[in-house]
Amino acid sequence: MSKTMDMEEMLQKIKDRQWALADIDWDAPGAELITDEMRPRLKAFMADLCWIENVGARGFAAMAKKAPNDTIAEIYRYFHAEEQRHANAELALLKRWGMLEDGEIPEPNVNIRLAIEWLDKYADDMSLSVLGTVIPMLEVALDGALLKFLLDEVNDPICHAVFEKINNDESRHIAVDFAVLDMLGHAKARKLAIEFVSGVASPGLIIGALMYIPLLNRVRNEVVDMGLQPERLYVAMGRFKKLGDRGEATHRVPLYQVLKWHAAMVINPKHPYHLLANTMVTLSDHYPKFLLRPIPTWFKELTYEPVSSTVSKPGARKDAA
């Protein structure tokens, strides 16, 4: 990654490459290629994928507030919307495959719910160096493993067309992510140390880690259940290291080192880390529902409808959870 990425140029490129649900023919043939056998697991997986995109979107919303300049802030504003776009498109695929009733939005699992709570409470207070390190990890995992795996499994041409668009967006996201991470690495060592210590010592980040570990393992287990070779996920996590180490100063960001170390543990299926992580997944299944706070309104903005003609207020709907 070049530290001299021209952000103005990147912003213009982002503006030029916008697409919408209306660009896609959701009724085109191909939906029948989804087998009944695939359906239940594919639905669970796609639902998680779509919620993870939405969680990523919220992360960019937090980053927009921390951006070092107006151009990067505007880029993050677009990325926030684009992650939402990906979630909307994935929802539209679910709808196309007949996996959603009219008006149905899939239920987020408990780890997603906990991640949302965390984001809503802490994300806006996290420093750019924390957000700027965690988000690329999430995106690389998504982009490198989950999406590519999906395309191997699903033959629907519309699904391929949609994910080609999503992947193009994601490659821009990842390029900017790592350019910013490198930029952060150029800060003074003292500033990096202070931000790291204050960031890590904060209850926010500790709780965040407690959310992140089981979320990652749950998705890992899910895709493995679906037949994904765990190596694929590991290759993707390895890419985080590869892209990061390419940066001139990225290695100086302490949290980057922590995540890299964490990724190495996740990659090794025999590492005792998985005992801890999988125990956390099981535990989270028993997380008392009444402790979950109401779902924030931003989480209910997802839609598979390409066109909106009137005002629908998600916040006005009573939350059943």
Binding site: W19, A20, L21, A22, E74, A81, E82, Q84, S308, S309
Partner: peptide
């Protein structure tokens, strides 16, 4: 962000056409 104005309204960057 508004991605573009179209004949029937506007498109936002979250892929929805209003």
């Amino acid at each position: 962000p508004i991605a573009t104005i179209v004949p029937q309204g506007l498109r936002t960057a979250d892929a929805v056409e209003h």
